[in-house]
Design a protein around this nucleic acid. Structure first.
Lengths: 189, 189
DNA sequence: CGGCTGAAGTTGACAGTGTCAAGTTGATGT
DNA sequence: ACATCAACTTGACACTGTCAACTTCAGCCG
């Protein structure tokens, strides 16, 4: 017997449903009605929790960001104390997250959320960015501007992930490992 | 009086319609029916030229790649003969293309085209990649593997473009200029 | 305890979408 | 003139997002 919908967290169930559908069937299959059906509610139930499909996507993106942040924190923890090893570890974690869950990855990193309050996404994104900034802190900035190292590393690993997911590296020389591409970074004096 | 549909190139008209809609109204507004209406044909006409919506998207992506290639060739030409200036010029052209036409940019670079023959997209993509590879040829490879420089540069500029378009740099330190991020590249001996 | 209120579901409808099937039209070849 | 074929058209169907109106249940107040 299904739990009556008023006795449970429908919002959380819809987000969980969206994550499952993204993982199993990809971005285009993640529709409002598919999420509602998977969560066991009517097609109009999401309207009470989200600002339409864009709102649901934003909520899923925020959750995805949180999961991503947990992933790269764990990778960094396992890498020990060497700053370069830690930075390489979060980059590898980034790539692994993208490969394991391409649909969620695109939702988290490549969609804009116009006309929707992005507070939750921005907050989750800020937490992920803080991890990156902390991990880059031991390195000298590029061109003497603060924040440049993390922008550089993030651009590099994100581009690497997107192009790979889209199959744009197919038929070209395989990109070198992240360690090689990061080799030019110098530690602070 | 409209040109009868049998007297003109419906395929090309549909692609042009798709490009216009992407530019004016964005990715989600670019539907089969919107393209057909804009091209002045019935909603089922595209089925005779493309393998459904994915096929139309792939054809538009191929055309977008060609336009992109023309853009960066022209930027490189204008930059003169200095290898570093030329590389920076195509990276700036990349960013400008992305900012000017985000919908087309995402279609060209970030979508996969499963279940659709990608020959045209791959061919067009190969031409763009060849320009990048030529422009990187004067630089020493990273970690001694051929093809590494262009993979590095492409990852960097593509990530930079995607994160900016998605608004993920908002609230963070602005990324440094491409010239700064590419400064670590060394010319071949 | 009964009534009221509000949150949060539901059902149903509508417009837009992608795709498919069947019919139509016009050009081409014999 | 007739047959054939390519390429369009019309119409239908299932799925989609969104909206409106209704229903249900929990909580509050008198």
């Amino acid at each position: 017997m299904d739990t009556p919908s008023h006795r449970r967290d429908v919002r959380a169930d819809l987000i969980a449903a969206g994550l499952a559908i993204l993982d199993e069937r990809g971005f285009e299959a993640m529709t409002l009605r598919a999420c509602a059906a998977r969560a066991g509610v009517s097609h109009a139930a999401p309207a009470h929790h989200f600002e339409g499909l864009p709102g649901l996507r934003a909520a899923i993106a925020a959750e995805g960001f949180r999961r991503f942040t947990a992933t790269i924190l764990e990778e960094r923890r396992k890498a020990g104390e060497d700053p370069r090893a830690r930075l390489e570890a979060i980059c590898e974690g980034y790539l692994r997250f993208a490969r394991a869950q391409p649909g969620l990855f695109n939702l988290v990193f490549n969609l804009t959320f116009e006309h929707v309050s992005e507070g939750e996404v921005e907050e989750a994104g800020g937490a992920a960015y803080a991890v990156l900034a902390e991990t880059c802190a031991p390195f000298a900035p590029l061109g003497d501007s603060e924040g440049s190292t993390e922008a550089f590393v993030w651009s590099l690993v994100h581009g690497r992930a997107c192009l790979e997911l889209a199959g744009r590296f197919d038929g070209t020389a395989a990109p070198p490992p992240m360690a090689t591409m990061l080799a030019g970074l110098r530690l602070r004096a």
